[in-house]
Design a protein around this nucleic acid. Structure first.
Length: 577
RNA sequence: GCCGUUGUAGCUCAGUGGUAGAGCACCUCAUUGGUAAUGAGGAGGUCACGGGUUCAAUCCCCGUCAACGGCUCCA
């Protein structure tokens, strides 16, 4: 790094500078706390301190006030290069800093940076002065292990964020509030979509009628795609003999994520953590000719994986979930085409659900796991990405234990990233299970497998959709598409009649039979984010119409029931947003 | 699992060492109201659970459980 401080700092440099400012403030107010490391991160920065007592929210307030003074003082950030011996001596009272100084490779410069009365061992990359920080705030405290290792001492981590201007900080805080409003856990309760029940245990999802309705629509969409691309449905058990997972390698490679054994009549069973072994057994149950390939088995397969209680989170990190899973068995020659078809289908799915911003990761197996087929598998993935002109990043060692994979991440409506689909190439499991097909040469050959889940898990996909749409599902997805609201009791029969005329079209229609005033009823359904409220009063009853109050629109219009049906049909068929 | 925070009505939250409150939601009655909250009444709580201190604990202390924020970001 040639220039370690700059007049036009990047956001990361600015935030790294803010981390120094925080450490300075901590040095002033809590001199006993030992600073360790404090990098910039995606949405701000943190700094870890070794201190016996945790920081309280009041401590954060005091620190924020002190940081403001340090920023206002506009201290210049000055750097100096020192010898290793000097650095180690300088931080003799701080074993963490001393450890870092000792570990800096020979030949790399060791630098100290100072603002005001605070000097830190630091690689550099800062704003020129503390005054460059226009807006900064501390957000939370958390425990964190030194260097992320559970066996190391726990430090106190303070999180914060910083921006060049106060206005940008304010905008960020507004975005945080927006994210909070869209939180699928909150909307899940408010819109009666799903719950996690304490009596049942964490990480297990109860889908209420409205959530299950949306899930059904998503599943139908996926099923249509599977049918069109020649997949066959299969169904496999949730619990099978442990022996199956010995053969597959899951017991050796995946045990930490599996629920423990269940013993029945001296046989050990396991809840399935993945669907592939089951699908493999179906493939293996009889001989296959090369003429049958590719064989594509699909299943909405529910799997159970052990996750530590502390990491469970709403619908996005759970212990039981259903994958839109499928396994393709093909010849090596067919691999490339099948992989590309799968990628096409993944893109069709995500675009239909309103995602436009994607990131692709090619995850390879770790050096220890790699075999001679890995380059072939990786090449298939790379060629598929390149033929689609899709940019991608490489995640080394992030692959499945049986092979490399392509992961697709999306950005939602407020810019957050989520991992959705995964497509994996597997030369390993077919061999382990002794899978064969009879080739044109009359000999048996081992097929190649593709594992793929495009939505990933129904739970996670649904949770992401809830946040993406902020609970306001487009008409084709909404659990209730329209509510017929009579103004007074005398229109109730007519309202029911309207609903009965719409339902045969397959529309999801409710009638508001409550004894409330019109304004109340409108408000209720608006807060429930129903796409259409159909108001019917004397006039509408007289001419067989409905007054359409559409979500997101101020204008009302009166149309016949048939006209409305046509409009809703059109929106549903085109999956209009 | 580990660190921190929080557990009071279905939800959001007040509150006190002397047996518990509001708003919304729910139920009943009146009202039949033309586009985001009609009025009145009612029901609803082992104050997360277990132990301790105290004449007395929802409140203080200890433990357990759960939820939430983190525990990947490397001077």
């Amino acid at each position: 790094m040639s220039d370690s401080t700059t007049n036009h700092p990047t956001l990361a440099e600015l935030r790294h500078t803010a981390a120094h400012v925080l450490a300075y403030a901590v040095q002033d107010l809590f001199p006993e706390a030992k600073p360790t490391i404090g990098p910039a991160i995606e949405n701000g920065f943190y700094y870890d301190f070794d201190r016996a007592k945790p920081f309280t929210p009041e401590d954060l307030e005091r620190l924020t006030a002190r940081m403001r003074e340090i920023v206002a003082a506009n201290y210049p950030m000055t750097g100096e290069q020192v010898t290793r011996a000097h650095a180690i001596e300088r931080f003799a009272g701080n074993p963490y800093k001393a450890e870092i100084a000792r570990e800096i490779p020979e030949g790399e410069p060791i630098t100290l940076y100072t603002i005001g009365e605070f000097t830190d061992l630091c690689r550099g990359g800062h704003a020129h002065t503390t005054g460059a920080i226009g807006g900064s705030t501390l957000t939370s405290v958390a425990g964190a292990y030194w260097r992320g290792k559970e066996t190391n001492p726990m430090l106190q981590r303070i999180y914060g964020t910083a921006f060049p201007t106060q206005a940008e900080l304010d905008a960020y805080l507004v975005q945080l509030a927006e994210a909070h409003k869209r939180d699928h856990r909150k909307l899940g309760v408010e819109l009666d979509l799903f719950t996690v029940e304490e009596e049942a245990g964490g990480g297990l999802i109860f889908w209420h009628p409205k959530g299950a309705t949306v899930r059904g629509i998503i599943e139908n969409f996926i099923r249509d795609g599977l049918r069109d691309r020649g997949y066959q449905p299969v169904v496999t058990p949730h619990i099978v003999s442990e022996k199956l997972y010995e053969i597959s390698g899951h017991l050796q490679n995946y045990q930490a994520n599996m629920f423990g054994p269940i013993e029945v009549e001296e046989q050990r069973f396991r809840l399935k953590p993945m669907n592939c072994p089951g699908h493999i057994l179906i493939f293996k149950s009889r001989l296959h000719s090369y003429r049958e390939l590719p064989i594509r088995y699909s299943e909405f397969g529910t799997v159970y994986r052990y996750e530590r209680s502390g990491v469970l989170h709403g619908l996005t990190r759970v212990r039981g979930f259903t994958q839109d899973d499928a396994h393709l068995f093909c010849t090596p020659e067919q691999l490339q085409f099948e992989f590309e078809q799968t990628l096409d289908e993944a893109l069709r799915l995500m675009e239909a659900f309103g995602f436009t911003d994607f990131e692709y990761f090619l995850s390879t197996r770790s050096a220890a796991e790699r075999g001679e087929t890995d380059p072939i598998a990786e090449d298939a993935i790379r060629r598929a990405l390149e033929s689609h002109h899709l940019p991608y990043q490489i995640d080394e060692g992030g692959g499945a234990f049986y092979g490399p994979k392509l992961d697709i991440n999306v950005r939602d409506a407020i810019g957050r990233k989520w991992q959705l689909g995964t497509v994996q190439v597997d030369f390993v499991l077919p061999g382990r299970f002794g899978l064969k097909y009879r080739a044109a040469d009359g000999h048996d050959h081992t097929p190649v497998m593709i594992h793929r889940a495009l939505a990933g898990s129904m739970e996670r996909f649904f949770g992401i959709l809830v946040e993406h749409f902020g609970g306001a599902f487009p008409a084709w997805l909404a659990p209730v598409q329209a509510v017929v609201v009579p103004i007074g009791e005398t229109q109730l029969e007519y309202a029911r009649d309207v609903a009965e005329r719409l339902r045969p079209h397959g529309f999801r229609i409710e009638v508001d039979e409550s004894n409330e005033k019109l304004g109340y009823k409108i408000r209720h359904w608006k807060t429930q984010k129903v796409p259409y409220v159909l108001v019917v009063g004397k006039q509408e009853m007289a001419d067989g119409s409905v007054n359409v109050n559409e979500r997101g629109s101020e204008t009302k219009r009166t149309v016949t029931v048939d006209e409305f049906a046509q409009e809703l049909r059109q929106k549903t068929e085109t999956r209009a947003s």
